[in-house]
């Protein structure tokens, strides 16, 4: 009898729980701080009902922050980030090398978690001895000649490119945008929904845009991402390489070369990346002690032919 009573009461509890869950879901669906603010503004006669509606929508977007940046907007941010990086580092105009870089890089990108971006993945060499690589949001990846010279073979170059693709697919660039930077722009955009932006609104949005570019390029070129961010890009690189058919141990091989040239706070990766040995330890948690295998001669030869002169 006691046990039956218990069953009945637990059944009651379940029913109540189911009901409450539904109620909560529907409440969350319509109530928000933004909604309260917008209706208050409307009641005070400061804004029109249409504007209140717009604010409602825009503020919901703001609450979700950068995740609401559409692929198209990410693409435009990425273009300006890449163009800004190319002010400091000039591109290396070598068709053969850049073509090879793109075949390898674009092929690798198809094996990541975000193979399709708005404008696709594109790669270019930078004419500098500095050991560095940058990836702009959306998939514009730039690799220094110094970095290429460090790669002993195609597998190691694949590791470098896969790491950069990792930054793109995890949207690390967008995450570097200062909190609150986009809020004003989003509100302006919402208020101007369906219209062409006028001079002052456009200026305001451009200001947020410029600020975002500064945040991203500053992080990529000067301060560097957090260590965990680099670890995450390495982790993605291992997944991409494995799926594509490259030996992920090549990433370790590459980092061992970087370790030899490691100067804490030195120019390039010494300034923006964790020490290679620390990254190797993290990667080995994922892949164990796998060692690099010999590459087929075709792969060895094509790497030499395409990148030998870089």
């Amino acid at each position: 009898m006691t046990s039956l009573k218990f069953q009945v009461s637990s059944f009651k509890f379940l029913a109540l729980f189911a009901f409450l869950s539904l109620a909560v879901v529907s409440l969350v669906g319509c109530a928000s701080v933004a909604g309260v603010v917008a209706s208050a503004g409307q009641a005070a006669g400061v804004i029109t009902p249409e504007q209140a509606e717009s604010i409602n929508k825009s503020a919901q977007a703001v609450e979700k922050t950068f995740q609401d940046i559409t692929p198209e907007q990410e693409y435009y941010i990425g273009r300006s980030v890449a163009a800004t990086v190319l002010v400091t580092y000039k591109p290396y105009d070598n068709k053969k090398a850049n073509d090879y870089l793109n075949v390898l890089g674009q092929t690798l990108s198809q094996f990541g978690t975000k193979p399709e971006t708005f404008g696709g993945y594109h790669f270019v060499l930078l004419d500098t001895d500095e050991i560095n690589a940058f990836s702009a949001p959306g998939g514009l990846v730039m690799i220094s000649r110094g970095m290429i010279r460090l790669c002993k073979n195609e597998d190691e170059l694949a590791a470098v490119l896969a790491h950069e693709i990792g930054h793109v697919e995890n949207q690390h660039g967008l995450r570097a945008i200062r909190k609150g930077r986009l809020t004003s722009a989003l509100t302006t955009l919402a208020l101007e929904a369906g219209k062409n932006l006028g001079g002052s609104e456009l200026a305001q949005v451009t200001q947020a845009f410029e600020g975002s570019i500064t945040d991203i390029t500053g992080t990529m070129m000067n301060s560097g991402y957090a260590r965990t961010t680099e670890f995450q890009a390495d982790k993605s690189a291992v997944s991409i390489m494995t799926a594509c058919g490259y030996n992920p141990a090549a990433l370790v091989g590459m980092l061992q070369e970087m370790q030899k040239r490691w100067v804490p706070n030195g120019p390039g990766f010494g300034h923006t990346h964790p020490e290679p040995s620390v990254r190797i330890a993290e990667i080995q948690k994922q892949i164990g002690g796998a060692s690099a295998a010999a590459e087929p001669s075709v792969r060895v030869n094509r790497f030499k032919e395409m990148m030998g002169g870089v």
Binding site: D68, I69, E192
Partner: peptide, 9 residues
Amino acid sequence: LALASKGFN
């Protein structure tokens, strides 16, 4: 809604 209206374009 993603970004209402035009965004960075």
